[in-house]
Design a protein around this nucleic acid. Structure first.
Lengths: 220, 220
DNA sequence: ATAACTTTGTACTAGACGGTTAATAATTAA
DNA sequence: TTAATTATTAACCGTCTAGTACAAAGTTAT
């Protein structure tokens, strides 16, 4: 479970460590420059090992990129697993989940950037990865539980689709990170100050809660 | 105003046409492969003219990319200008604006992809473009008007920030297009069917409307 | 002991890439 | 008429890039 980068000096050879080191460095590079923008030579120079070892472990540049993607998704999953929502009332649980997602994305810009890059590539690599599909089904199951509990308690509206709800939460959380550069370049706003981000998060939670709580005919 | 691509055979030389043709082709290529992924040779091969002329008009690859970005933003603005919202009640106007934005983004995936790419590059090119900043201030002015009218009519809550509202509308509309590949690769859902997209749009409108209409203490 | 696995490091290649040159000339605005 | 602008074409250049070759050897599991 521990993913620390420790040289483990007792062991002279450290395959896992080397692999991990390469993965760390290349994830940063891919996130920074994109798939075609990242340079294998540069990645190699930043690792503790050599270019030769990159090809030894990952075959080629695409293989390395794929490995980075998978590692990133797994890491995110590990984070989400720590959330304990079962003990909370459904509306509180949902509020916590939205807030958590918003914060989590904000704290992991490299992951967001990898997903952006993958989208630019039309998800070509993700499509062929079984590992990653599993990761996300957990998130949906989580949401399904909350929705059911909320509906049983008469708190939530009837027609709620967990995948759609996940989409809505993701949209507000993802966009915040992915489009920060263009958005803050275009509007010299306070949205990306500490205060602004807190407001944005609170309002994201509010939007989702209002949406799931809204019963037909109440408004509009 | 007319941006059609007409050879204009009466005129033997057609600078505007050549420029436009290069712009069209390269926008598609940049949207498809990214800034470093797109190939100048390939772009040249797809134009009616030669590589030499690309450098003649745009200096270098980055200059060409910058020109594509500016053209894309201008084109989007032209579309938004056609909307006439002043005659509508503020809530109807906002609903129409959200629906329009959602549809507009969906119909212009190449524009979205260019913005994604620009975000990957931390908005480096956008920052140095005065043209583009102007385009977006119009959108904010539009929203400011709607908000004020809505508040005066007692329909909208008091604390509304036009830039934040624009952010929220953009998030739901942009994410729908930008993350379609990964999202539909991960969840084999109906969200991207014709029906699903209609639902998603309707719910986006609903979310925004609920949010702006929500008065403190009413819920939550 | 043996075989499989892991590591190092440099030098190299074959091709792709962005960008230029050169020579040339037709068209157009003044 | 003159001068600036707009065009054509293909070869070419230097650099960068992903990936390999090669040669050698230490480490570990069985």
């Amino acid at each position: 479970m521990e993913l620390e980068e420790r040289p483990n000096k007792a062991v002279k050879r450290d395959p896992k460590g080397v692999r991990l080191n390469i993965l760390r460095v290349s994830s940063k590079e891919f996130a920074e420059y994109g798939l075609s923008g990242a340079r294998v030579n540069e990645i190699a120079a930043l690792t503790k090992t050599s270019k030769r070892m990159i090809y030894y472990y990952f075959g080629d540049k695409n293989g390395l990129y794929r490995a980075c993607l998978e590692a990133a998704y797994s890491h995110v999953r590990a984070g989400e697993e720590k959330l304990d929502l079962a003990g909370l009332a459904p509306d509180k649980a949902l509020a916590k989940l939205v807030g958590f997602t918003f914060d989590h994305h904000r704290k992991n810009p490299d992951f967001i950037r990898l997903v952006m890059i993958e989208n630019i590539h039309k998800a070509a690599y993700l499509k062929s990865s079984d590992i990653i599909r599993k990761v996300n089904s957990a998130a949906i199951k989580n949401l399904t539980g909350i929705i059911t509990r909320g509906q049983d308690a008469g708190l939530f509206r009837d027609e709620l689709d967990p995948v759609e709800l996940h989409w809505q939460i993701s949209a507000l959380s993802f966009f915040n990170v992915s489009n920060k550069p263009t958005f803050s370049a275009l509007f010299n706003s306070e949205l990306y100050s500490k205060e602004g981000q807190r407001t944005l998060r609170d309002h994201a939670v509010e939007m989702i809660l209002l949406y799931v709580s809204h019963k037909k005919g109440t408004l509009l």
